[in-house]
């Protein structure tokens, strides 16, 4: 149990998916301009990551390993993720058309979100058991959502700040991200 808590904390803070592992930077820079879209994106990604981690992990352990086809891992994983994202797209369209509109192009782009495929592969590389995989993936996704939301709040304020012309937009966002990364990095070893 204690080991799971350490794992969860690491996934959320010290090995934070965006600020430490650099996965999911594209939506991080692209969708984080407004709080509502950041939150919506975070929830969609959370759902996709959890679902795809479980499916890909199970497929790897029980199908690929059994048939000694581990090298097909990348292809199989990305196809599973693409299919799941299509499914999520249909669900979001039905359940919340406004969110669907707000996310726009970024919803199908979850397929190419490094975080989703990255987490699926990391679970395998780190030899996680099923429980560890669920905890790790869940807290990685929560960390993603948290940082996205945090960042969107800062960016909303940044719009009103006197940023030098050359830095407007992505550059200043990256500088802010650097500061956030510094803060998150210092949490190592607390748990």
């Amino acid at each position: 149990m204690a080991e799971l808590i350490t794992l969860a904390f690491a996934a959320f803070v010290t090995e934070n998916v965006i600020l430490t592992q650099f996965l999911g930077i594209c939506p991080f820079l692209g969708v984080s301009k407004k709080r509502s879209s950041a939150l919506g994106m975070g929830l969609a990604v959370l759902f996709v990551i959890l679902l795809s981690s479980i499916v890909t992990w199970t497929m790897y352990q029980y199908v690929l390993v059994a048939l000694e086809l581990q090298y097909l891992r990348t292809i199989v994983f990305i196809l599973v993720i693409a299919a799941l994202v299509q499914m999520v797209e249909l669900i979001v369209k039905k359940v919340s058309p406004s969110l669907y509109k707000a996310l726009g192009i970024y919803l199908p782009l979850i397929t190419t979100n490094c975080a989703v495929l990255g987490v699926a592969i990391l679970n395998i590389d780190k030899n996680h058991t099923f429980i560890q995989m669920v905890v790790y993936s869940g807290f990685i996704a929560l960390g993603f959502m948290f940082v996205m939301y945090l960042f969107s709040m800062i960016r909303e304020k940044l719009d009103y700040s006197p940023v030098p012309k050359a830095f407007k937009g992505v550059p200043i966002a990256l500088i802010v991200a650097a500061i956030l990364a510094m803060i998150f990095a210092r949490f190592g070893g607390i748990v």
Partner: peptide, 17 residues
């Protein structure tokens, strides 16, 4: 470290801008 990555990228983009 990760910090440096964000900083370097940000500054290069700013210079280009």
């Amino acid at each position: 470290k990760p910090v440096g990555a964000f900083l370097t990228f940000g500054f290069i983009l700013a210079v280009i801008a």
